[in-house]
Design a protein around this nucleic acid. Structure first.
Length: 287
DNA sequence: AGTCAGGCTATTA
DNA sequence: TAATAGCCTGAC
């Protein structure tokens, strides 16, 4: 399947699983394009481009060059965070439910996604379901995103893809188009696109702020409340101490941590713990 | 058919 | 400050 001469990065990686990350609710554009008993390939759009990744157990093949790996993708997949150390904290704790969640979803990681895409995507996510969020994000990209073609990695057929639309790339009337499925969020999105097109530096400044500063800045914008701001901090700014509490996390905290959740024990990386719990809760609710 | 979704804004008291 | 009505709409 892999053609001789293709440029690939091969790695053996613990605590990393493509399907688990795809199902962990932090990314809405990953697509499984091949799957059989022993391997999967995901097509992953990000930063106006994409990467194809093949997984066989704990062996991964990334369809990119060494330079691309070091400059873009190893950071995107959060390879520089020590998940083995987090695993050790979980195993050493007396939190049986968390240990169960980790056993089921130890391959979940907090991606370092593009901040702009995360801001818009999680504004769309409020009071919304995962299916509808994906539909809206796809519609937005297809409508306004720059079109490009895949390179035929792994011998796969070439196809067209769409980048996530940057500020200035979306026309006003898109926010009047009900086929986008934005619903009542459309005015919030329009305002965010207009503001950022006029003030692009605010995103740069946001990226340099502390968690507390960034949180306060984010909730000052219409359409961003506490939960969405925490998601943006966690998934877009990699403030891994951010702990978004949505309806599912609220339910699981009530169910399994009625006496209170020990945030202090996980200070500095509570958001990663939240993600294990969230993933496991959604896995459970599917059955 | 009704409920709910990875909540937020605006309005009340 | 705290509580809550109302909101687009598709998926189940």
């Amino acid at each position: 399947m892999i053609k001789a001469g293709d440029i690939m990065i091969e790695r053996q990686i613990r605590n990393f699983d493509l399907k688990q990350i795809a199902d962990s609710g932090q990314c809405f554009r990953w697509r499984q394009i091949v799957a059989d008993a022993e391997m999967v390939i995901y097509r992953i759009p990000a930063f106006g481009t994409y990467i194809d990744v093949m997984q066989q157990g704990d062996k991964f093949t990334f369809a990119c060059t060494e330079v691309q790996w070091e400059n873009i993708w190893q950071d995107y997949f959060d390879m520089l965070t020590d998940y083995n150390a987090i695993e050790q904290v979980i195993l050493d704790s007396d939190d049986v439910h968390l240990q169960e969640a980790f056993r089921a979803g130890n391959g979940v990681r907090i991606l370092k996604q593009d901040i702009w895409e995360i801001i818009i995507t999680f504004m769309i996510s409020q009071n919304n379901n995962i299916k509808r969020i994906g539909n809206s994000v796809d519609a937005l990209c297809r409508c306004c995103g720059r079109k490009f073609k895949t390179a035929g990695d792994f011998g796969l057929p070439v196809e067209e893809m769409y980048a996530f639309p940057k500020p200035g790339e979306v026309h006003e009337d898109v926010f009047e188009d009900s086929s986008m499925g934005f619903g009542y969020r459309a005015p919030y999105l329009r305002e965010m696109y207009a503001y950022t097109a006029a003030n692009p530096q605010w995103i740069v400044e946001l990226a340099h702020m502390s968690y507390d500063q960034a949180y306060k800045e984010l909730i000052s914008h219409k359409g961003i409340g506490p939960k969405v701001a925490n998601c943006i901090c966690l998934f877009g700014l990699h403030h891994v101490d951010a702990f978004p509490i949505d309806t599912h996390v609220k339910q699981l905290l009530d169910k399994y941590y009625a006496d209170g959740f020990d945030f202090d024990r996980y200070a500095g990386f509570a958001g990663i713990i939240q993600q294990y719990l969230f993933y496991y809760e959604l896995l459970d609710s599917d059955k």
